[in-house]
Each structure stands twice: as C-alpha cells, then as structure tokens.
Design a protein around this nucleic acid. Structure first.
Lengths: 158, 158
DNA sequence: GAATTCAAGGAATTTTGTTCCATTTTTTCA
DNA sequence: TGAAAAAATGGAACAAAATTCCTTGAATTC
C-alpha cells in the first residue's frame, strides 16, 4: 500500500489547491476525473498526513501600502547556541520579517522584510539592532517583484 | 465615504484570513464582533477591491521532498529592454523559481529557487543558463528555514 | 430635523461539505 | 489461477456553510 507517495491524482488535487484553495470539491473532482466523495477523502487524507498544511489568504501588498521589500543579510561571529536562540526568537517575532533563513556561504542569515517605505525600514532596523547586538548587516532593496508564488514545483514530488 | 482605507474590523478580518482562509464566516464574524451577513459583505468587498487577492493552500516542503532552498543572485551588463523581457519571461516560467526580484545594489536580480536536492538545483541551473546567456550568477543555499509566512504585517496598513 | 444613504442582523434559500452505504476495482495469498 | 480481503469509487441522504432577501437601526447630508 502506498502510504505516502502521491499518485497523479493527488498531485493534480494539490496543484488545484495551490492555485485556488476555495475551489469546491465538486470542481476539483471533475478536473481530476473523480466524483466528489473519493476526491473529498483524498483531500482529507492529504490534510491528515500533513502534506496539505493550511489554507491562507494572500493580500495585495501595494493596496495595503506595503510596497517595500528588503533582503537583509546578517553576518555574525557569535556562534554559541544561546545567542543564536535569542537572535532567532527576536527576529521571528517581528511581523515585518516574512522569511528568515540560516544560510551557508557569504552571509549567516538572510531575512526578507516587508514594510511601507524606507523610513519604516529604518525604524525596523533600529528596533532590530536595539534588541540584539548585530555587527555586520547588509540591506538590499527590491525594486520590482517580478514573480511571487506560494506554489511548490510539484513536478518533482514523489 | 471611506472607499479605501480599512477600519479596524476589516483589518481583523484580514488578519483572520491570512492565518486561516478556511474559517467559516460565522466564526470570523464572532471574532470581529459582527453577525455573519455584514461580515460576509465586508469580505466580498475586500475581494472586489482586490485587497484580498486569493486563497491558496500551503503544502509541506519536506513531505514533498522539496527541502532545498537556494537564493540566486544575478548580475548582468545587458540592460536593454529586449534582453530584460526575455530574461524575465524565461525565469518566470520555471516553476522552481518561487520568487524573483529586480534589485538595487550589489546584484541586479534575485531568485528564490526550491528543489529536492543539490543535483536538481544543478540541473535547474544548467537549464537556466542554457536558455539565457548569464555571466555572473551566485548561489547561496539555505541551511534552515527559520520563518516563512505569507501574512503581511497589517499593523502598518492604512 | 427630516431625508437620504449606509451598515447591520435575522430568516429563508441555495450551495457546498460530509457521511452513509452499496458497488466496483485492486491486491493478497492460498 | 482464482477466491478472499482490502481499498477505492460513486450516488444519495444529510449537515453545515455560504449567499440572498428583506427589514431595522445608525450615520450623514442638506
């Protein structure tokens, strides 16, 4: 029994839901060539197994006056666990920080920060370095968002 | 009449939906202190005005074997419009590219790429440079995703 | 302060989600 | 190979949610 691996129907279902999580089950069922009951059960199974994590609303950045995206690179010499945990905790709690990664290579951490304007970014920056001691921080501003998607590339998914 | 600006109820509604787009209107209504009809109308209005763009399903990267995130910086000397459009078109069409920005400063473009493993990233990279002539490309690998959210910081929103 | 516009809420209706059960298909294993 | 078991399917019944309708209350205008 294939407990985990997705077959082509499950993949199609996920593709649909990545595009539009509000699609009625009946519509999805039709697209994937099933009737609604088995389709519904597959969706529930995908939820239970955790493949389908959640459904969220995506808002318009510009309409909400949040047009500025900044990528922040952080280099640090302090590599002790305690400092790291503190650092992570502080950063995670800023709602302006939408993504936060520990990196290999040039920078140690990378943040994607969203704010209304440069002034707000500066304010954010001040609040950040006030809470944690950061020496080497570099900020790169995005001039244009050419693509932003939450849809994972399922072509690979096995 | 305040055609655009959100009042505190609209913001609460958006906060709810950014967290869980599947929440029944009745539940949201209760949380924001309205009955379902006016709450439903506000949601529809937010949709119609485009503030609420869409509802999507978020999947589990690891469970789908897509654990590798790479940030790709591209520098280019070719700044003519034609090349740029071609470049953008090619990049956008790669499903592995989840984010794509034109940047100020050090690099001209930045991509966030999601793939199963390093080998798949290399394959992606080969396909990319095969399609467009890129000279200066740098790849940084994320070791750990500490935070990833699609929820915009609405504290600012006016 | 009356008229008008706008937002709200309860109830009815429609749509969609969910369960139930019988049937078909697939898999297992003798 | 073929019967038994397991798993998946689909239609119908049921439950829950979304959507509409209509009336009432509040705010704004002139």
């Amino acid at each position: 029994m294939e407990q985990n691996s997705l077959n082509s129907i499950d993949r199609k279902i996920l593709e649909c839901l990545q595009e539009d999580a509000g699609l009625p089950v009946a519509d999805i069922a039709e697209r994937v060539g099933l009737s609604k009951t088995p389709c519904w059960r597959r969706i529930r199974h995908l939820e239970e197994s955790g493949v389908l994590r959640r459904r969220v609303a995506l808002l318009d950045r510009d309409k909400l006056n949040l047009g500025v995206t900044v990528f922040v690179g952080v280099k640090t010499s302090k590599h002790d666990v305690k400092w790291l945990e503190e650092f992570a905790k502080v950063v995670v709690n800023f709602p302006e920080v939408m993504e936060f990664y520990r990196m290999s290579g040039d920078v140690d951490y990378m943040l994607r920060v969203v704010v209304p304007d440069i002034a707000a970014y500066d304010a954010f920056y001040q609040r950040l370095i006030q809470r944690i001691d950061l020496t080497d921080v570099s900020s790169s501003f995005a001039m244009e968002e050419i693509k932003y998607t939450t849809a994972l590339p399922l072509a690979y998914a096995g």
